[in-house]
Design a protein around this nucleic acid. Structure first.
Lengths: 124, 124
DNA sequence: CAGCATCCCAGGTGATACTG
DNA sequence: CAGTATCACCTGGGATGCTG
């Protein structure tokens, strides 16, 4: 009645993969649900917490805070706090964060090609 | 005692995102746990089910079958069945599937840069 | 304003056993 | 060999309420 085991195979292999394949490593860092959108919002200019919240239309504060924290830890963005009375915090992409642009552009392209292909097929 | 509700905000926004951003759309198609690895294995040559199974070291048959099915549906790969006694099936990337190479290369590059940066920082 | 703490649920995966 | 069927689990993410 213990349940002592716990899969483990999971983590082991995932880490193994991320060690040998930088693509997997990268996805682990930037592949979660909201990060792509956060990136797109921050791409052109720094934004504050609430701006992002409204812009990301639908994200919960919890998720926004969590994702921003992770991205900060991973040096994708910088958190700048202003010691003012109504707290103010802005988020800005770091150089390595901005370097993601190339990746997303590539991905965007592929997505477009793919969607066109699928729609074309749908017509047959 | 029903639980009739169901979030829904989730799906709605996700679909919305995928409509306006091809990157999100693309990630939805190729972003799941094993697809990246399956792609890498198939990149150079077609492979059979069991080859993939052993090569992917750790994947369950269930997951392999599910992912292959999805990728086939999404036209990332083709399934070729040989009507032989011990069943034989090989999987091969389609052109649109091969086109992913550019994306992954880009991602790989970014991952490498990122990892270097992080390790460099760790030394300070 | 910018979060954090709690509680909870659903879907993606894993383990295991069975089949054409 | 190449899957399918079941059952169970864990983690990402949502809802809600509180705080400096």
């Amino acid at each position: 009645m213990k349940k002592t085991k716990v899969s483990s195979t999971n983590q082991v292999n995932k880490n193994y993969l991320e060690d040998i394949c930088m693509g997997a490593y990268a996805l682990g860092i930037i592949g979660s649900r909201w990060k792509l959108s956060i990136f797109f919002n921050l791409k052109d200019r720094p934004m504050r917490f609430s701006e992002l919240k409204y812009s990301l239309n639908g994200i919960t504060e919890r998720m926004l805070a969590l994702n921003l924290a992770e991205m900060e830890k991973d040096k994708i963005l910088t958190r700048i706090v202003f010691a003012e009375v109504p707290a103010r915090v802005v988020y800005e992409l770091t150089p390595i964060g901005k370097a993601l642009t190339a990746v997303w552009d590539q991905l965007d392209n592929w997505g477009r090609q793919h969607k066109d292909l699928i729609s074309a097929d749908a017509l047959l």
